[in-house]
C-alpha cells in the first residue's frame, strides 16, 4: 500500500566539507498516514544514506527527533507526512552536529 508520494526538502550541512548549508530534495514513497520520520528512514534506506538525523523512542517522548517541519517545530515521529515538506534542524535551543542531527543539552 505504498501509494503516497511526498516531496521532501531536507536542510543539509556537513561542517566537515560544506561552506554553506543547502537544501536537497527527495521523492519519497510511503503508506497513507506515514510519519515524517518514516520519510527520513526511507531516504536513508533507499535514496541517500548520508543524511544525518536522530530518533529513538518513536512515540513522542524522548524528544530526539524534534525538528522544524514546514517552519514549525515538531516531533517527526508523530507528525503525519504532507505532500510537500521542508525539514530543518531545531537549532534554536540545540547545537547543530550535521544536517538534521543536533546536540540537545538542556532538558
Amino acid at each position: 500500500m505504498v501509494n503516497n508520494t511526498s516531496i521532501v526538502k531536507v536542510w543539509r550541512f556537513n561542517p566537515e566539507t560544506d561552506r554553506e548549508p543547502y537544501y536537497k530534495t527527495y521523492e519519497v514513497h510511503h503508506e497513507e498516514n506515514a510519519t515524517v520520520l518514516d520519510c527520513l528512514n526511507y531516504i536513508y534506506e533507499y535514496l541517500d544514506p548520508s543524511v544525518s538525523y536522530r530518533y529513538a523512542c518513536k512515540i513522542g517522548f524522548c524528544v530526539s527527533c524534534l525538528m522544524v517541519i514546514n517552519g514549525k517545530p515538531g516531533f517527526t515521529c508523530l507528525k503525519i507526512a504532507e505532500k510537500e515538506m521542508t525539514i530543518e534542524p531545531q537549532i534554536k535551543k540545540a547545537k547543530l552536529i550535521k544536517d538534521l542531527a543536533t546536540d540537545f543539552q538542556d532538558d
Binding site: 566537515e16 566539507t17 548520508s50 544525518s52 544536517d99
Partner: peptide, 11 residues
Amino acid sequence: VTVKDKTFNLE
C-alpha cells in the same frame, strides 16, 4: 559503508 563522511555517519 557507502557514505564516507566522518561526522555523524549513520551508515
